[in-house]
Amino acid sequence: MFAFSPSDGGDKRESYRDLVVAALALTDGESDGVANMANLAALIWTMLPDLNWAGFYRVLPGTAGLVLGPFIGKPACIRIAHGAGVCGTAAATGTTQCVADVHAFPGHIACDADSRSELVVPVLRDGTVVAVIDLDSPAPARFDADDVAGIEALAQAIAARIQF
């Protein structure tokens, strides 16, 4: 049994180190990438405050975009073209997108009207984007440089464990 919980809210960097350690423990020895993404979405939801959506979009071989993966939050768009919205931009460019005001992002795809800010981090395997981690918040400017560094560290740590 796992009993993960958020840290006391002190040092955000330490909280992200705890998240990565928990993610590696949770996925240790499990080869099913979808099961790992489902548990990771739940872990992120449990350990990070002020989210209204946390999950994955996957790049499936032979497709020209992203397909919804495991998540927690309101129902979401099933397919997102590369370059469309925050997730599609992260996938197309291979770069993290940290958006303080999603309504100001050109082409933003509004799956949940309550979302105000978003952080999308590509998951790279052998230099290729295989998925993105998508976090939405109802708080404007919820994500900062520590969140970017923390979720990028998570993406790097779990890249080999979300094969599908």
Rank of each mutant, 00 (worst) to 15 (best):
H103C: 07
M37L: 02
A76M: 10
D50H: 07
V99G: 00
A149L: 11
P140H: 15
R13K: 13
A149N: 15
D8S: 11
L51S: 14
G127K: 03
A141T: 13
L40F: 10
T128L: 07
P122M: 04
A64H: 12
I72C: 07
D50L: 02
C87V: 05
V130H: 09
G85A: 13
A149E: 13
L43K: 01
T27D: 00
S7V: 02
T96H: 13
V20I: 10
A81V: 01
I158E: 08
V120L: 04
V99P: 07
S137M: 14
R13A: 12
S115H: 01
G73N: 02
L124Q: 14
N39D: 08
D136M: 09
A84S: 15
F164H: 04
Q163A: 00
D134S: 08
A155Y: 01
V67N: 03
T46C: 14
V132I: 00
D114R: 00
Q156K: 14
V86T: 09
P61C: 07
M47E: 08
T93C: 09
L60T: 06
I162R: 03
P61G: 07
T63P: 06
A90S: 14
R13L: 03
F105N: 11
S31H: 10
V59T: 06
D147H: 09
L26M: 13
M1T: 02
R142F: 04
A131Q: 03
A91S: 15
